[in-house]
């Protein structure tokens, strides 16, 4: 089969991931046909995993491994989560293939999860110290949207910064029905706890304000 990442992109990705610190595991959930983009997502993850010895890639079946899927809150396919060096789930999830511009939020999440400081500690300060309720951040994207990776990275970094926050990228075309349910016709669209919405690549301050207002 042809590779998804051509020679130039392979080189770029390899260089990008070179500074990774600790080990990261990607757990992909798929299911037997019909599964739109399962095959491509599987191929992307295995090609990227092959470019760094610090990445492990495992594949699970949504039905056969239902208990694990439930642990990570995975309900759709293709969907993958990233685990840190202790195999702990930090609330970082991708639903659909992170191709096109979205490769950037994927690579950035790998770097962040490996322990590279993403410099949010001073911005967040003590603002999330009193957060007790669970926060779910959905970021709807299209693969042709240049502003979307920034929105996804912000959400994922918040998830990595607090145990009660989880964040998921949702590729709007693969999950068309879900996108319709949330009235998505412009991206990035950020939905927090199904009740609060932000549109566009917002600075982290806007996420924090919205979370504080929940």
């Amino acid at each position: 089969m042809d590779k998804l990442l051509n020679e130039d992109v392979t080189k770029q990705v390899k260089e990008y991931l070179n500074p990774m610190q600790d080990h990261v595991t990607m757990v992909l959930f798929t299911q037997e046909d019909p599964c739109n983009t399962c095959q491509e997502t599987r191929q992307l993850l295995s090609e990227v995993a092959a470019l760094s010895e610090k990445i492990t890639y495992v594949e699970k079946d949504l039905k056969k491994d239902a208990a694990l899927a439930e642990e990570y809150g995975v309900t759709m396919t293709p969907s993958f989560v990233m685990l840190d060096k202790n195999d702990a789930y930090q609330g970082v999830k991708f639903n659909g293939i992170p191709a096109g511009h979205e490769i950037n939020s994927f690579l950035s999440a790998l770097m962040d999860m490996s322990g590279i400081d993403f410099g949010l500690a001073s911005t967040i300060g003590s603002r999330l110290d009193n957060l007790e309720k669970p926060v779910n951040i959905k970021v709807f994207v299209t693969l042709s949207c240049p502003h979307c990776p920034g929105a996804v990275s912000n959400a994922h970094r918040l998830a990595m910064s607090h145990p009660h926050i989880e964040s998921e990228m949702i590729e709007a075309q693969t999950f068309g029905e879900l996108s319709q349910k949330y009235n998505v016709s412009g991206v990035p669209k950020i939905v927090i706890n199904d009740t609060h919405e932000l549109v566009g690549n917002q600075p982290i301050q806007e996420y924090l304000k919205t979370i504080e207002a929940l």
Binding site: T142, S144, C145, P146, H147, C148, A172, Q173, S179, N183, V184, S185, G186, V187, K189, V199
Partner: peptide
């Protein structure tokens, strides 16, 4: 109707139509 049909970024939002 902004982001409910009205868009300002063709490359981002064309796939919805």
């Amino acid at each position: 109707f902004a982001n409910k049909g009205v868009s300002y970024c063709t490359t981002c939002d064309a796939p919805f139509f």
